[in-house]
Write a protein that binds this DNA or RNA. Structure first.
Length: 724
DNA sequence: GCCGCATCAGCTGA
DNA sequence: CTCAGCTGATGCGG
């Protein structure tokens, strides 16, 4: 962590020859019509792009003003690589984009961008040129369409409607009986367009919104609701696919991004993004079928030449593709597999298979999502968006089971940021750390952590961070034994969500705070894990952070922010990352040199997004379990990792962070000095720098205030400009 | 304890 | 309306 240096993306980071950094999300302004769903009166609105809001219905004609405005919004990146959009005039971008739109208006031919000259680490996928999105026009011009289209084009005349009620998320009859809810949701969906009057989702033109944020918002909402459903369902012993339930709910409410199929790039989705459910791909508009591997659509080529072409495939490795290459893919057609004792049959050239065949002729780009085994979760699966491919050949093949099967060979379009190759590379390092080059030290923790902490420098000749002592446990000024003990539970073996008598569950507001796989359900002002005074065993699910780190970390040299922290493993949203370890500074002692300690942790109020992370109860219309969770409550604790610390001292600040801190207690009852534990705010792909929000100046900064302020140029659209 | 396999309840879009 | 489909959770046997 180097708090004195600022982060500003520079276009010249090509020195990063080996590891493209997936650092902060490139942001660019996009004046969009957006839907806002207001959760509570005190919560800032969540923002979602509506179907027609982002892509007005029926604008198909080239040169249409709406098209032009779309292209201006999304095409403007083309000439500028990953530079922050704010650093250039929007007019220039618009002009460029208009030309781009006209160029592709003639036909639907695709054109992979020539962005290879851009620094690969800073090139957002949105900078990669593609076909303008093709929208299936809505079949009728109902109220909503006009509504939304109007919002899209008028920048000033947009009106903000308050939601009339919050019952949208509230599921009637608890969470046990699901069928009624689903049916209800479907009914809502089918009547959605007509029922413009009573929609809870209002149209708010937030100029600060951009596709990336919309996508993240949608995903965060999905995860929040899914985990909350899981929590509630498990307590009622009726756990059945919360992913599908929440997906259906969000689809019905139009709480989704990028509605409408398209060829090529999907705004707000970047190469390397990872997902844990097929439903996630669905609600962000990347791949619409919930199970099928081939997504396809009818596209008009030339003037009136309609064809059904493939637009996205999920290669989950189900059909025996042992291909290690990172830029080619042999995909098997669908069908033929047996189910319900039916015998296997040859695949037919229909539906998805036919669309793939047509795509071979039409040469359109196809998005590829790759599925992997999740190294962090047994039996789990991760999906990674790997960018645009084209089909180069196809053939028929007889499989081991004796049926005819279609095969399609896809090649990755050149000039795109790295996707799966990063995954393969980092997984290789996990298996054999010796294959990681540029290593300065194989394990900074010298065996103290569960897994080695690698120190690397791909950038320059610096040999490492300044001297400090690596410790894995917080140093309190007084011995633990002298601190107030924590009351435990009397559960036998392990605490279970169905056990309403578990004392620890009660401490946490009636529910166990973690899912069965150890994911935090939602942020709380305080979290109590089971500890020594509990009867339960170490296998209890309410013991997560005390078991230490679970992913392979590396400390790496950043371009301009000193040293940083990242992981070789993917990190799922809600996962425990690490503890802020250091020396706890006694409250009594005044520390005049606080401002000079770049490694001082204080509970400064983080951004609203972090603070309200996945407040599942509120999302579902429930009252918060604990009123104090609604407000930020600074703690007296101060931890200095200047002389002694662990990996977390290297975590840099970002105004768009991917991690947050959470007070956790398990070994003592001193509420003023909890452990500070970091959790993943969202899914974090391998090799992405881990960052958290250092906090806002002026809001409960514990007396430290502005003297310690450092200016921040993190480049995110919501950058506050400084941090402390 | 770990794997592969079978089973089953699901949901969307064609 | 029906149904396919590179799901995801669970349970069993090797």
């Amino acid at each position: 962590m180097d708090r004195t240096s600022n982060f500003m993306p520079t276009p010249d980071q090509s020195v990063l020859d080996v590891q493209p950094l997936r650092t902060l999300a490139p942001m660019f302004p996009a004046p969009l019509g957006v839907n806002t769903f207001n959760l509570t009166n005190t919560t800032p609105p969540l923002v979602f792009v509506t179907s027609a809001g982002q892509f007005p219905g029926g604008f198909g004609a080239p040169g249409h003003p709406a098209f032009r405005s779309f292209a201006a919004a999304f095409g403007a990146q083309d000439a500028y690589g990953g530079q922050p959009a704010s650093s250039r005039g929007q007019d220039a971008g618009g002009g460029q984009a208009t030309a781009f739109a006209d160029k592709y208006a003639a036909n639907g031919a695709t054109n992979p961008g020539a962005t290879a000259d851009c620094p690969i680490d800073a090139t957002p996928i949105s900078a990669y040129r593609s076909t303008p999105p093709t929208i299936i026009p809505l079949d009728d011009d109902d109220d909503d369409n006009e509504h939304l289209a109007g919002n899209q084009t008028s920048a000033s005349g947009r009106k903000i409607k308050r939601p009339s009620h919050l019952s949208g998320y509230k599921m009637s009859g608890g969470f046990g009986s699901d069928d009624s809810n689903v049916v209800k949701a479907k009914r809502h969906r089918s009547s959605y367009r007509k029922a413009g009057a009573d929609n809870e989702f209002t149209l708010v033109p937030l100029s600060s919104s951009n596709p990336r944020e919309v996508v993240e918002e949608v995903l965060m909402t999905f995860e929040a609701l899914r985990r909350r459903y899981l929590q509630v369902d498990q307590a009622q012993e009726s756990s059945k696919r919360p992913d599908l339930k929440v997906g259906a709910m969000m689809m019905a409410r139009n709480l989704r991004a990028n509605i409408g199929k398209r060829i090529g790039v999907v705004p707000g989705i970047e190469i390397g993004d990872i997902f844990y459910f097929r439903m996630e791909l669905c609600i962000i508009g990347l791949h619409s079928p919930t199970m099928a591997g081939i997504d396809y659509m009818t596209h008009t080529f030339g003037d009136k030449d309609d064809d059904s072409v493939a637009i996205c495939i999920v290669a989950a490795g189900v059909y025996e593709n042992e291909d290690d290459a990172t830029d080619t893919l042999v995909y098997s057609g669908s069908g033929g597999s047996s189910k319900n004792n039916e015998e296997m049959h040859d695949q037919k050239l229909e539906r998805g298979n036919l669309a793939l065949q047509t795509s071979l002729l039409r040469k359109n780009v196809i998005r590829v999502v790759r599925g992997f085994k999740d190294p962090g979760c047994l039996g789990g699966k991760v999906y990674m968006y790997d960018g645009l491919y084209k089909i180069h050949e196809s053939w028929k093949e007889r499989t081991k089971t004796g049926i005819q099967c279609f095969k399609y060979k896809l090649l990755r379009e050149p000039g795109q940021p790295e996707g799966m190759s990063i995954w393969k590379m980092s997984q290789k390092w996990v298996e054999n750390p010796a294959t990681r080059g540029r290593v300065l030290h194989p394990d900074l923790s010298s065996g103290a952590e569960n897994l080695p902490v690698c120190l690397v420098n791909d950038i320059n000749s610096e040999k490492g961070p300044g001297l400090f002592t690596y410790i894995t446990q917080v140093k309190y000024p007084k011995p633990l034994s002298s601190m107030k003990p924590l009351q435990g539970c009397s559960c036998l073996n392990a605490c279970l969500p169905t056990d309403t008598d578990c004392g620890c569950a009660k401490f946490n507001g009636a529910n166990l705070p973690y899912s069965s796989t150890g994911l935090l359900v939602c942020r709380k002002n305080r979290l109590y894990e089971c500890g020594e005074s509990c009867q339960c065993s170490v296998n209890c699910r309410n013991r997560v952070t005390q078991k230490g780190v679970r992913v392979h970390f590396e400390i790496f040299r950043t371009g301009n922010r000193g040293w940083g922290l990242r992981s070789w493993d993917p990190i799922r949203a809600g996962s425990f990352i690490c503890e802020y370890v250091g020396e706890v500074i006694d409250d009594g002692k005044s520390n005049l040199d606080d401002g000079e300690d770049d490694y001082l942790f204080q509970t400064v109020c983080p951004g609203e997004k972090t603070l309200k992370w996945n407040c599942g109860p509120e999302l579902m219309g429930e009252q918060s379990m604990n009123n104090s969770d609604d407000t930020f409550e600074p703690l007296p604790i101060k931890i200095s990792a200047k002389r002694k610390g662990n990996i977390s001292r290297f975590m840099n600040h970002s105004c768009s962070p991917n991690a947050f801190w959470q007070p956790v207690q398990f070994d003592h009852g001193d509420d003023g000095h909890p452990h500070i534990m970091f959790f993943a705010l969202k899914h974090i792909p391998p090799m992405t720098e881990l960052t958290y929000d250092y906090g806002e100046i002026g809001t409960d900064s514990g007396g430290i205030g502005s003297p310690g302020a450092k200016s921040c140029l993190c480049g995110s659209s919501n950058c506050r400009g400084y941090f402390c």
